[in-house]
Design a protein around this nucleic acid. Structure first.
Length: 425
RNA sequence: GGAGAAAUGGCAGAGUGGUCGAAUGCGGCGGUCUUGAAAACCGUUGUUCCUUUGCGGGAACCGGGGGUUCGAAUCCCUCUUUCUCCGCCA
Protein backbone atom coordinates (compact mmCIF):
# COMPACT_ATOMS: atom_id res chain seq x y z
CA UNK A 1 0.00 0.00 0.00
CA UNK A 2 0.98 3.61 -0.32
CA UNK A 3 2.14 5.31 2.82
CA UNK A 4 -0.28 7.56 4.60
CA UNK A 5 2.26 10.31 4.83
CA UNK A 6 3.01 10.18 1.13
CA UNK A 7 -0.67 10.39 0.22
CA UNK A 8 -1.27 13.32 2.54
CA UNK A 9 1.70 15.22 1.18
CA UNK A 10 1.16 14.43 -2.49
CA UNK A 11 -2.59 14.31 -2.87
CA UNK A 12 -2.90 15.65 -6.41
CA UNK A 13 0.06 13.73 -7.71
CA UNK A 14 -1.36 10.45 -6.41
CA UNK A 15 -4.74 11.08 -8.00
CA UNK A 16 -3.18 12.09 -11.32
CA UNK A 17 -0.73 9.23 -11.49
CA UNK A 18 -3.35 6.62 -10.64
CA UNK A 19 -5.32 7.70 -13.69
CA UNK A 20 -2.63 5.98 -15.75
CA UNK A 21 -3.97 2.78 -14.19
CA UNK A 22 -7.46 3.96 -15.07
CA UNK A 23 -8.15 4.25 -11.39
CA UNK A 24 -10.26 7.15 -10.19
CA UNK A 25 -8.95 7.74 -6.69
CA UNK A 26 -9.90 11.27 -5.71
CA UNK A 27 -12.76 10.18 -3.48
CA UNK A 28 -10.72 7.49 -1.77
CA UNK A 29 -7.70 9.73 -1.33
CA UNK A 30 -9.72 12.58 0.09
CA UNK A 31 -11.45 10.19 2.48
CA UNK A 32 -8.08 8.92 3.63
CA UNK A 33 -6.69 12.41 4.16
CA UNK A 34 -9.75 13.45 6.11
CA UNK A 35 -9.54 10.40 8.34
CA UNK A 36 -5.84 10.99 8.83
CA UNK A 37 -6.48 14.49 10.12
CA UNK A 38 -9.02 13.04 12.51
CA UNK A 39 -6.59 10.32 13.53
CA UNK A 40 -3.84 12.78 14.36
CA UNK A 41 -6.18 14.94 16.34
CA UNK A 42 -7.42 11.97 18.36
CA UNK A 43 -3.91 10.72 18.93
CA UNK A 44 -2.88 14.10 20.20
CA UNK A 45 -5.70 14.38 22.73
CA UNK A 46 -5.27 10.78 23.79
CA UNK A 47 -1.54 11.22 24.37
CA UNK A 48 -2.17 14.21 26.57
CA UNK A 49 -4.81 12.40 28.59
CA UNK A 50 -2.56 9.43 29.04
CA UNK A 51 0.30 11.64 30.09
CA UNK A 52 -1.95 13.22 32.73
CA UNK A 53 -3.20 9.94 34.10
CA UNK A 54 0.30 8.54 34.14
CA UNK A 55 1.45 11.48 36.21
CA UNK A 56 -1.51 11.13 38.57
CA UNK A 57 -0.86 7.44 39.02
CA UNK A 58 2.69 8.13 40.05
CA UNK A 59 1.52 10.70 42.55
CA UNK A 60 -0.98 8.27 44.00
CA UNK A 61 1.74 5.69 44.34
CA UNK A 62 3.92 8.14 46.21
CA UNK A 63 1.06 9.16 48.48
CA UNK A 64 0.30 5.54 49.38
CA UNK A 65 3.92 4.92 50.16
CA UNK A 66 3.92 7.92 52.44
CA UNK A 67 0.83 6.52 54.13
CA UNK A 68 -1.31 9.45 53.02
CA UNK A 69 -4.25 7.23 52.17
CA UNK A 70 -6.90 9.92 52.30
CA UNK A 71 -5.12 12.16 49.84
CA UNK A 72 -4.51 9.20 47.64
CA UNK A 73 -8.20 8.40 47.68
CA UNK A 74 -9.01 11.93 46.61
CA UNK A 75 -6.52 11.78 43.77
CA UNK A 76 -8.05 8.50 42.66
CA UNK A 77 -11.39 10.14 42.11
CA UNK A 78 -9.82 12.60 39.73
CA UNK A 79 -8.79 9.77 37.45
CA UNK A 80 -12.28 8.34 36.99
CA UNK A 81 -13.42 10.84 34.39
CA UNK A 82 -10.11 10.72 32.58
CA UNK A 83 -10.25 6.96 32.39
CA UNK A 84 -13.61 7.10 30.67
CA UNK A 85 -12.27 9.67 28.26
CA UNK A 86 -9.25 7.55 27.44
CA UNK A 87 -11.44 4.54 26.82
CA UNK A 88 -13.60 6.44 24.35
CA UNK A 89 -10.64 8.10 22.67
CA UNK A 90 -8.69 4.93 22.16
CA UNK A 91 -11.61 3.06 20.68
CA UNK A 92 -12.29 6.03 18.39
CA UNK A 93 -8.65 6.05 17.39
CA UNK A 94 -8.58 2.32 16.76
CA UNK A 95 -11.71 2.57 14.66
CA UNK A 96 -10.30 5.47 12.66
CA UNK A 97 -7.07 3.63 12.04
CA UNK A 98 -9.03 0.59 10.94
CA UNK A 99 -11.02 2.62 8.46
CA UNK A 100 -7.88 4.28 7.12
CA UNK A 101 -6.36 0.88 6.53
CA UNK A 102 -9.49 -0.35 4.80
CA UNK A 103 -9.29 2.56 2.39
CA UNK A 104 -5.52 2.38 1.98
CA UNK A 105 -5.56 -1.18 0.76
CA UNK A 106 -8.06 -0.20 -1.92
CA UNK A 107 -5.51 2.08 -3.57
CA UNK A 108 -3.34 0.45 -6.22
CA UNK A 109 0.33 1.22 -6.52
CA UNK A 110 1.34 4.32 -8.44
CA UNK A 111 2.76 3.44 -11.85
CA UNK A 112 6.27 4.56 -12.70
CA UNK A 113 6.65 7.52 -15.06
CA UNK A 114 7.76 5.26 -17.87
CA UNK A 115 4.54 3.21 -17.78
CA UNK A 116 2.42 3.90 -20.86
CA UNK A 117 -1.24 4.70 -20.42
CA UNK A 118 -3.71 2.21 -21.81
CA UNK A 119 -6.62 0.00 -21.01
CA UNK A 120 -6.05 -3.41 -22.58
CA UNK A 121 -3.16 -5.71 -23.53
CA UNK A 122 -3.32 -4.06 -26.97
CA UNK A 123 -1.81 -0.98 -25.39
CA UNK A 124 1.26 -2.77 -24.06
CA UNK A 125 4.52 -1.74 -25.67
CA UNK A 126 6.82 -4.33 -27.14
CA UNK A 127 10.32 -3.46 -26.01
CA UNK A 128 12.27 -6.32 -27.53
CA UNK A 129 11.81 -9.54 -29.34
CA UNK A 130 14.15 -12.31 -30.24
CA UNK A 131 14.50 -15.84 -31.46
CA UNK A 132 13.20 -17.16 -34.73
CA UNK A 133 9.77 -18.69 -35.05
CA UNK A 134 10.17 -22.29 -36.23
CA UNK A 135 8.79 -23.46 -39.54
CA UNK A 136 6.56 -26.38 -38.71
CA UNK A 137 5.06 -28.96 -41.00
CA UNK A 138 1.39 -28.47 -41.75
CA UNK A 139 0.65 -31.57 -39.70
CA UNK A 140 2.38 -30.19 -36.61
CA UNK A 141 0.44 -30.88 -33.43
CA UNK A 142 -0.41 -28.68 -30.46
CA UNK A 143 1.24 -29.82 -27.26
CA UNK A 144 -1.81 -31.58 -25.86
CA UNK A 145 -1.86 -33.86 -28.88
CA UNK A 146 1.89 -34.37 -28.64
CA UNK A 147 1.45 -35.15 -24.96
CA UNK A 148 -1.02 -37.89 -25.84
CA UNK A 149 0.97 -39.25 -28.76
CA UNK A 150 4.21 -39.65 -26.79
CA UNK A 151 2.46 -40.45 -23.50
CA UNK A 152 3.96 -37.40 -21.81
CA UNK A 153 1.25 -35.59 -19.92
CA UNK A 154 -2.02 -37.15 -18.87
CA UNK A 155 -4.72 -34.58 -18.33
CA UNK A 156 -7.52 -37.10 -17.82
CA UNK A 157 -5.56 -38.95 -15.18
CA UNK A 158 -5.06 -35.70 -13.29
CA UNK A 159 -8.78 -35.10 -13.50
CA UNK A 160 -9.40 -38.51 -12.00
CA UNK A 161 -6.92 -38.03 -9.16
CA UNK A 162 -7.75 -34.40 -8.40
CA UNK A 163 -9.69 -32.43 -10.96
CA UNK A 164 -9.32 -30.38 -14.10
CA UNK A 165 -6.14 -28.35 -14.25
CA UNK A 166 -3.98 -30.81 -12.31
CA UNK A 167 -2.08 -32.70 -14.99
CA UNK A 168 0.06 -35.76 -14.45
CA UNK A 169 3.51 -35.62 -16.04
CA UNK A 170 4.91 -38.98 -17.02
CA UNK A 171 8.21 -40.47 -18.10
CA UNK A 172 10.28 -38.13 -20.20
CA UNK A 173 7.95 -35.20 -19.54
CA UNK A 174 8.39 -35.64 -15.80
CA UNK A 175 12.10 -35.85 -16.33
CA UNK A 176 12.06 -32.80 -18.56
CA UNK A 177 10.10 -30.85 -16.00
CA UNK A 178 12.68 -31.70 -13.36
CA UNK A 179 15.44 -30.79 -15.82
CA UNK A 180 13.90 -27.36 -16.35
CA UNK A 181 13.60 -26.77 -12.61
CA UNK A 182 17.22 -27.70 -12.04
CA UNK A 183 18.40 -25.68 -15.01
CA UNK A 184 16.54 -22.59 -13.82
CA UNK A 185 17.75 -22.95 -10.24
CA UNK A 186 21.34 -23.44 -11.34
CA UNK A 187 21.14 -20.39 -13.57
CA UNK A 188 19.66 -18.30 -10.77
CA UNK A 189 22.35 -19.46 -8.38
CA UNK A 190 25.03 -18.42 -10.85
CA UNK A 191 23.34 -15.04 -11.19
CA UNK A 192 23.62 -14.45 -7.45
CA UNK A 193 20.22 -15.53 -6.16
CA UNK A 194 20.32 -17.62 -2.98
CA UNK A 195 18.33 -20.77 -3.23
CA UNK A 196 15.46 -21.27 -0.82
CA UNK A 197 12.92 -23.99 -0.24
CA UNK A 198 10.06 -22.11 1.35
CA UNK A 199 6.77 -23.32 2.80
CA UNK A 200 4.08 -23.59 0.19
CA UNK A 201 1.31 -22.85 2.66
CA UNK A 202 1.29 -19.36 4.12
CA UNK A 203 -0.65 -17.61 6.84
CA UNK A 204 -2.92 -14.61 6.53
CA UNK A 205 -0.26 -12.05 7.39
CA UNK A 206 1.97 -13.29 4.59
CA UNK A 207 -0.87 -13.35 2.09
CA UNK A 208 -1.65 -9.79 3.09
CA UNK A 209 1.96 -8.71 2.94
CA UNK A 210 2.43 -9.35 -0.75
CA UNK A 211 -1.06 -8.19 -1.63
CA UNK A 212 -2.95 -11.45 -2.23
CA UNK A 213 -5.31 -10.56 0.61
CA UNK A 214 -7.77 -9.03 0.87
CA UNK A 215 -8.37 -8.48 -2.83
CA UNK A 216 -7.48 -11.74 -4.48
CA UNK A 217 -8.88 -13.95 -1.77
CA UNK A 218 -10.89 -16.09 -4.19
CA UNK A 219 -7.80 -16.78 -6.27
CA UNK A 220 -6.01 -18.78 -3.60
CA UNK A 221 -6.83 -22.19 -2.25
CA UNK A 222 -7.73 -21.69 1.37
CA UNK A 223 -7.14 -24.43 3.90
CA UNK A 224 -9.91 -23.38 6.24
CA UNK A 225 -9.17 -25.92 8.96
CA UNK A 226 -5.89 -24.17 9.73
CA UNK A 227 -6.55 -20.85 8.03
CA UNK A 228 -3.61 -21.22 5.66
CA UNK A 229 -3.35 -20.47 1.97
CA UNK A 230 -1.67 -22.49 -0.76
CA UNK A 231 0.77 -20.14 -2.44
CA UNK A 232 -0.13 -18.85 -5.90
CA UNK A 233 3.56 -18.03 -6.41
CA UNK A 234 6.82 -18.35 -4.46
CA UNK A 235 6.83 -14.56 -4.34
CA UNK A 236 4.58 -14.82 -1.29
CA UNK A 237 6.77 -16.89 1.05
CA UNK A 238 10.03 -15.48 -0.35
CA UNK A 239 9.12 -11.82 0.09
CA UNK A 240 7.54 -12.45 3.47
CA UNK A 241 10.82 -13.82 4.73
CA UNK A 242 11.62 -10.13 5.16
CA UNK A 243 8.34 -9.11 6.75
CA UNK A 244 8.91 -6.90 9.81
CA UNK A 245 12.63 -6.81 9.21
CA UNK A 246 15.13 -3.99 9.12
CA UNK A 247 17.89 -4.94 6.75
CA UNK A 248 21.38 -3.51 7.33
CA UNK A 249 22.59 -1.31 4.50
CA UNK A 250 25.49 -3.62 3.76
CA UNK A 251 23.15 -6.55 3.12
CA UNK A 252 21.26 -4.88 0.27
CA UNK A 253 20.29 -6.12 -2.18
CA UNK A 254 18.92 -9.44 -0.96
CA UNK A 255 18.34 -11.81 -3.85
CA UNK A 256 16.46 -15.07 -3.45
CA UNK A 257 15.25 -17.81 -5.72
CA UNK A 258 13.01 -20.78 -5.17
CA UNK A 259 11.28 -23.50 -7.05
CA UNK A 260 7.77 -24.20 -5.81
CA UNK A 261 4.56 -25.59 -7.11
CA UNK A 262 1.98 -22.82 -7.43
CA UNK A 263 -1.74 -23.12 -6.90
CA UNK A 264 -4.35 -20.89 -8.44
CA UNK A 265 -8.08 -21.35 -8.42
CA UNK A 266 -8.41 -19.28 -11.61
CA UNK A 267 -12.00 -18.64 -10.74
CA UNK A 268 -13.73 -17.19 -13.76
CA UNK A 269 -11.26 -18.48 -16.36
CA UNK A 270 -12.91 -20.52 -19.04
CA UNK A 271 -12.66 -21.09 -22.75
CA UNK A 272 -9.90 -21.64 -25.23
CA UNK A 273 -7.04 -20.32 -23.13
CA UNK A 274 -7.32 -23.19 -20.70
CA UNK A 275 -6.51 -25.95 -23.16
CA UNK A 276 -3.64 -28.27 -22.29
CA UNK A 277 -0.88 -26.64 -20.28
CA UNK A 278 -1.96 -23.11 -21.04
CA UNK A 279 -3.72 -22.50 -17.74
CA UNK A 280 -3.56 -24.82 -14.75
CA UNK A 281 -4.58 -24.93 -11.13
CA UNK A 282 -1.24 -26.38 -10.12
CA UNK A 283 1.99 -25.62 -11.91
CA UNK A 284 5.71 -25.39 -11.25
CA UNK A 285 7.65 -22.20 -11.26
CA UNK A 286 11.06 -20.89 -10.35
CA UNK A 287 10.81 -17.42 -8.94
CA UNK A 288 13.37 -14.71 -8.27
CA UNK A 289 12.84 -12.07 -5.60
CA UNK A 290 14.90 -9.06 -4.72
CA UNK A 291 14.86 -6.55 -1.88
CA UNK A 292 16.63 -3.44 -3.01
CA UNK A 293 17.51 0.12 -2.09
CA UNK A 294 15.00 2.54 -3.68
CA UNK A 295 17.79 4.24 -5.62
CA UNK A 296 18.69 0.98 -7.33
CA UNK A 297 15.40 -0.80 -7.78
CA UNK A 298 14.86 0.21 -11.39
CA UNK A 299 18.35 -0.87 -12.31
CA UNK A 300 17.45 -4.17 -10.67
CA UNK A 301 14.24 -4.39 -12.66
CA UNK A 302 16.25 -4.11 -15.87
CA UNK A 303 18.82 -6.60 -14.60
CA UNK A 304 16.12 -9.11 -13.72
CA UNK A 305 14.54 -8.62 -17.11
CA UNK A 306 17.85 -9.26 -18.85
CA UNK A 307 18.38 -12.30 -16.70
CA UNK A 308 15.01 -13.78 -17.69
CA UNK A 309 15.71 -12.91 -21.30
CA UNK A 310 18.91 -14.92 -21.06
CA UNK A 311 16.90 -17.96 -20.01
CA UNK A 312 14.51 -17.94 -22.96
CA UNK A 313 17.42 -17.26 -25.30
CA UNK A 314 19.29 -20.29 -23.94
CA UNK A 315 16.22 -22.41 -24.43
CA UNK A 316 16.04 -21.22 -28.01
CA UNK A 317 12.48 -19.98 -27.75
CA UNK A 318 11.12 -17.10 -29.82
CA UNK A 319 10.10 -14.45 -27.34
CA UNK A 320 9.00 -10.91 -26.91
CA UNK A 321 9.17 -8.55 -23.95
CA UNK A 322 6.26 -6.26 -23.27
CA UNK A 323 6.14 -3.20 -21.11
CA UNK A 324 2.70 -3.39 -19.60
CA UNK A 325 0.42 -0.41 -19.91
CA UNK A 326 -1.28 1.08 -16.86
CA UNK A 327 -4.49 -0.79 -17.43
CA UNK A 328 -2.89 -4.22 -17.80
CA UNK A 329 -0.61 -4.00 -14.78
CA UNK A 330 -1.30 -5.67 -11.51
CA UNK A 331 -2.68 -3.73 -8.58
CA UNK A 332 0.55 -3.77 -6.59
CA UNK A 333 3.09 -3.18 -9.34
CA UNK A 334 4.76 0.09 -10.29
CA UNK A 335 6.26 -1.28 -13.48
CA UNK A 336 6.01 -4.67 -15.11
CA UNK A 337 7.63 -6.43 -18.04
CA UNK A 338 5.88 -9.51 -19.35
CA UNK A 339 7.67 -12.22 -21.26
CA UNK A 340 5.85 -14.20 -23.89
CA UNK A 341 7.17 -17.13 -25.85
CA UNK A 342 5.75 -18.21 -29.17
CA UNK A 343 4.16 -21.61 -29.17
CA UNK A 344 4.21 -22.46 -32.82
CA UNK A 345 1.60 -25.15 -33.24
CA UNK A 346 -0.98 -23.13 -31.38
CA UNK A 347 0.31 -20.10 -33.25
CA UNK A 348 0.07 -18.21 -30.00
CA UNK A 349 2.12 -16.09 -27.64
CA UNK A 350 2.14 -17.50 -24.12
CA UNK A 351 3.04 -15.48 -21.05
CA UNK A 352 5.86 -17.21 -19.21
CA UNK A 353 7.18 -14.50 -16.95
CA UNK A 354 6.21 -11.28 -15.35
CA UNK A 355 8.94 -9.13 -13.83
CA UNK A 356 7.81 -6.31 -11.58
CA UNK A 357 9.07 -3.57 -9.35
CA UNK A 358 6.64 -3.01 -6.50
CA UNK A 359 8.66 -0.14 -5.11
CA UNK A 360 7.54 0.28 -1.50
CA UNK A 361 4.02 -1.03 -2.03
CA UNK A 362 4.58 -4.47 -0.56
CA UNK A 363 7.26 -3.21 1.81
CA UNK A 364 4.82 -0.77 3.37
CA UNK A 365 2.34 -3.54 3.91
CA UNK A 366 4.84 -5.80 5.58
CA UNK A 367 7.08 -3.23 7.28
CA UNK A 368 10.12 -4.23 5.28
CA UNK A 369 12.77 -1.61 5.84
CA UNK A 370 16.47 -1.01 5.66
CA UNK A 371 18.96 1.05 7.61
CA UNK A 372 20.70 3.69 5.56
CA UNK A 373 24.41 4.09 5.05
CA UNK A 374 24.86 6.23 8.16
CA UNK A 375 23.09 3.63 10.26
CA UNK A 376 20.84 6.29 11.72
CA UNK A 377 17.79 6.33 9.53
CA UNK A 378 15.34 3.66 8.54
CA UNK A 379 13.56 3.69 5.20
CA UNK A 380 11.10 1.47 3.40
CA UNK A 381 12.83 -0.89 1.00
CA UNK A 382 11.75 -1.75 -2.52
CA UNK A 383 10.75 -5.25 -3.55
CA UNK A 384 10.87 -6.87 -6.96
CA UNK A 385 10.12 -10.26 -8.32
CA UNK A 386 9.93 -12.19 -11.51
CA UNK A 387 9.18 -15.62 -12.83
CA UNK A 388 12.29 -17.36 -14.01
CA UNK A 389 10.38 -19.16 -15.32
CA UNK A 390 6.87 -20.60 -15.22
CA UNK A 391 7.23 -24.14 -16.46
CA UNK A 392 4.08 -25.39 -18.18
CA UNK A 393 4.01 -22.87 -20.99
CA UNK A 394 7.74 -23.26 -21.50
CA UNK A 395 7.10 -26.96 -21.76
CA UNK A 396 4.25 -26.35 -24.19
CA UNK A 397 6.39 -24.14 -26.42
CA UNK A 398 9.35 -26.51 -26.30
CA UNK A 399 7.19 -29.48 -27.26
CA UNK A 400 5.46 -27.67 -30.06
CA UNK A 401 8.40 -25.75 -31.50
CA UNK A 402 10.84 -28.64 -31.38
CA UNK A 403 8.66 -31.34 -32.88
CA UNK A 404 9.93 -33.10 -35.95
CA UNK A 405 9.25 -36.32 -37.79
CA UNK A 406 11.96 -37.98 -35.65
CA UNK A 407 10.50 -36.79 -32.39
CA UNK A 408 10.76 -33.82 -30.07
CA UNK A 409 14.23 -32.38 -29.74
CA UNK A 410 15.49 -31.29 -26.35
CA UNK A 411 17.37 -27.93 -26.31
CA UNK A 412 21.11 -28.59 -25.90
CA UNK A 413 21.31 -26.65 -22.60
CA UNK A 414 18.81 -29.07 -21.09
CA UNK A 415 20.37 -32.30 -22.32
CA UNK A 416 22.82 -32.50 -19.37
CA UNK A 417 19.77 -32.31 -17.14
CA UNK A 418 17.44 -34.65 -19.00
CA UNK A 419 19.96 -37.24 -20.01
CA UNK A 420 18.26 -37.63 -23.39
CA UNK A 421 18.18 -35.57 -26.57
CA UNK A 422 14.99 -36.70 -28.15
CA UNK A 423 11.48 -37.65 -27.18
CA UNK A 424 10.29 -40.30 -29.57
CA UNK A 425 7.76 -43.09 -29.48
C1' G B 1 -3.51 -35.95 20.09
C1' G B 2 -2.52 -36.04 25.97
C1' A B 3 0.38 -33.88 30.37
C1' G B 4 3.63 -30.15 32.12
C1' A B 5 6.92 -25.69 31.58
C1' A B 6 8.04 -21.28 29.19
C1' A B 7 7.79 -16.67 25.83
C1' U B 8 11.53 -9.85 28.19
C1' G B 9 15.86 -5.30 23.83
C1' G B 10 20.70 -8.06 18.17
C1' C B 11 21.79 -12.39 21.65
C1' A B 12 22.05 -14.28 26.78
C1' G B 13 19.47 -13.17 31.06
C1' A B 14 17.35 -10.25 35.78
C1' G B 15 12.90 -8.20 37.03
C1' U B 16 6.30 -11.09 40.21
C1' G B 17 1.73 -4.45 41.13
C1' G B 18 4.28 1.96 41.81
C1' U B 19 9.40 7.12 38.11
C1' C B 20 10.74 -0.08 34.29
C1' G B 21 11.75 1.22 28.02
C1' A B 22 13.24 -2.16 31.50
C1' A B 23 19.39 -4.37 35.77
C1' U B 24 23.64 -7.09 34.22
C1' G B 25 26.70 -9.63 30.58
C1' C B 26 27.90 -10.38 25.45
C1' G B 27 27.74 -8.27 20.73
C1' G B 28 27.57 -3.42 17.83
C1' C B 29 29.11 1.78 17.41
C1' G B 30 32.30 6.08 19.17
C1' G B 31 36.50 7.45 22.14
C1' U B 32 41.14 7.15 25.48
C1' C B 33 45.65 4.35 25.43
C1' U B 34 48.96 1.96 21.27
C1' U B 35 53.56 2.42 15.64
C1' G B 36 49.14 -0.82 14.62
C1' A B 37 46.05 -4.40 16.88
C1' A B 38 44.45 -6.84 21.28
C1' A B 39 43.46 -6.05 26.35
C1' A B 40 41.78 -2.40 29.72
C1' C B 41 38.92 1.87 30.65
C1' C B 42 35.01 5.71 29.32
C1' G B 43 30.71 6.79 26.56
C1' U B 44 26.78 5.14 23.43
C1' U B 45 23.36 1.51 21.66
C1' G B 46 15.23 -0.55 19.97
C1' U B 47 10.70 0.41 17.10
C1' U B 48 6.06 2.94 15.91
C1' C B 49 3.05 7.16 16.33
C1' C B 50 1.77 12.47 17.83
C1' U B 51 3.92 17.38 18.34
C1' U B 52 7.98 21.15 17.08
C1' U B 53 11.16 25.22 11.59
C1' G B 54 14.89 23.20 14.91
C1' C B 55 16.57 21.94 19.90
C1' G B 56 13.18 19.29 22.22
C1' G B 57 8.49 17.38 24.37
C1' G B 58 4.77 13.42 24.64
C1' A B 59 2.32 8.43 23.98
C1' A B 60 2.55 3.22 22.96
C1' C B 61 5.23 -1.37 22.65
C1' C B 62 8.40 -6.96 27.63
C1' G B 63 4.81 -13.35 21.95
C1' G B 64 -0.74 -11.55 19.86
C1' G B 65 -5.60 -9.99 21.65
C1' G B 66 -8.82 -8.86 25.78
C1' G B 67 -9.58 -7.85 31.15
C1' U B 68 -8.66 -6.32 36.58
C1' U B 69 -6.34 -1.74 38.88
C1' C B 70 -5.41 5.12 40.24
C1' G B 71 -1.13 2.31 38.25
C1' A B 72 0.63 -4.10 34.80
C1' A B 73 6.69 -6.82 31.98
C1' U B 74 4.60 -8.36 36.82
C1' C B 75 -2.37 -10.47 38.38
C1' C B 76 -6.67 -12.86 35.34
C1' C B 77 -8.80 -14.78 30.52
C1' U B 78 -7.76 -16.28 25.59
C1' C B 79 -4.97 -17.36 21.23
C1' U B 80 -0.20 -18.46 19.11
C1' U B 81 4.60 -20.33 19.43
C1' U B 82 8.70 -22.96 21.76
C1' C B 83 10.68 -26.71 25.11
C1' U B 84 10.20 -31.48 28.07
C1' C B 85 7.59 -36.19 28.67
C1' C B 86 3.93 -39.68 26.49
C1' G B 87 1.27 -41.42 22.13
C1' C B 88 1.24 -41.56 16.72
C1' C B 89 4.01 -41.04 12.26
C1' A B 90 6.99 -39.67 6.68
Amino acid sequence: MLSLKYISENRDMVVTRLKVKNFESSELVDGIIELDIKRRKLKNILDNSQATIKKLSREIGTLFQQGKNEEAGQAKEKTTALKEEIKTLSSDLAETEGRIRELLVQLPNIPHNSVPPGKTPEDNIMVREGGAKPELNPDALPHWDLAARYDLIDFELGTKVTGAGFPVYKGKAARMQRALINFFLDQAGTAGYSEIIPPILVNEDSAFGTGQLPDKEGQMYHVTGDNLYLIPTAEVPLTNIFRNEIIPFSELPRKLTAYTPCFRREAGSYGKDVRGLNRLHQFDKVEIVEVQHPDNSYASLEAMTSYVEGLVVKLGLPYRILLLCGGDMSFASAKTYDFEVFSAAQNKWLEVSSVSNFESYQANRMMLRFRDETGNKIHTAHTLNGSALALPRIMAALLENNQSPEGIKIPPVLVPYTGFELINP
